[in-house]
Amino acid sequence: MTVLPKDIPGDSLKVTVGTANGKPGDTVTVPVTFADVAKMKNVGTCNFYLGYDASLLEVVSVDAGPIVKNAAVNFSSSASNGTISFLFLDNTITDELITADGVFANIKFKLKSVTAKTTTPVTFKDGGAFGDGTMSKIASVTKTNGSVTIDP
């Protein structure tokens, strides 16, 4: 049996954390987006972790974005102690894959008090994996961190 590389060099799934701005007490939304989904033969499963400074940001909610089908079954998240974990699994293993680019999740943060303008990162942590529509590992994932700026 011969195994051929399935990824064209330079191609990767792009996962990007967005940015937001606000004043202390505001609730802002930071999107997590996927790009080049079709090039990577869709997404059938993924789990990953984001870190944030809990002294500056309070997670209000984490909701599935419009590219997630049947989110009540296929999407899960949790947030505590400065870490947000995400889990997606197409429970049907074929019919509810992520097949389009767009917003995977929206994180709502309540901004805490600061004395001066502060930009705090929302960054990928170690761990996690992504699988394509056949549940094979997506070897190349380009992750881009985001941030939230609090301006009193």
Rank of each mutant, 00 (worst) to 15 (best):
G127Q: 04
T120S: 07
N42P: 04
A64V: 07
S12R: 12
M1T: 08
S113T: 06
K69M: 07
V3C: 13
D132M: 00
N74D: 06
T99E: 11
T115N: 03
D26K: 09
S140K: 14
G82W: 15
T134H: 05
T142N: 07
A79P: 05
T123S: 07
V148D: 01
T27P: 10
S12W: 07
C46L: 13
A139T: 05
K117C: 05
Y49F: 05
G22E: 14
A38N: 09
A105P: 01
K6M: 14
S85T: 04
D151Q: 14
A64C: 14
T118A: 07
A35G: 14
D151L: 15
N91M: 15
G51L: 07
S140C: 04
E96Y: 02
S61I: 12
N70T: 10
F130C: 04
D53H: 10
L57E: 10
A129T: 02
S147T: 06
S12V: 11
F109R: 02
G128Y: 02
N47H: 02
D101P: 05
A64Q: 07
M135A: 00
G51Y: 11
T19S: 10
A71K: 12
K69H: 12
N106M: 04
N145K: 07
L97C: 03
A105I: 03
V43Y: 01
K69S: 11
A35K: 13
A129I: 01
D126W: 15
P24N: 13
T115D: 07
L4I: 08
K69I: 13
G10R: 14
S77G: 09
L57P: 02
A38E: 10
P5C: 06
V43Q: 08
D90T: 02
G18I: 12
F88T: 00
P5S: 07
T45K: 02
T99C: 05
N70Q: 09
I93W: 14
G133D: 04
N47V: 01
D53G: 10
M135I: 14
V30L: 13
L89W: 03
K39A: 12
T92I: 00
L57K: 10
A116S: 07
K41W: 07
L87C: 00
K69R: 10
G82H: 15
S76Q: 04
K110M: 08
T149D: 15
T115V: 07
N47D: 03
P66W: 15
V43E: 02
A105Y: 01
T119R: 11
F109G: 00
F124N: 10
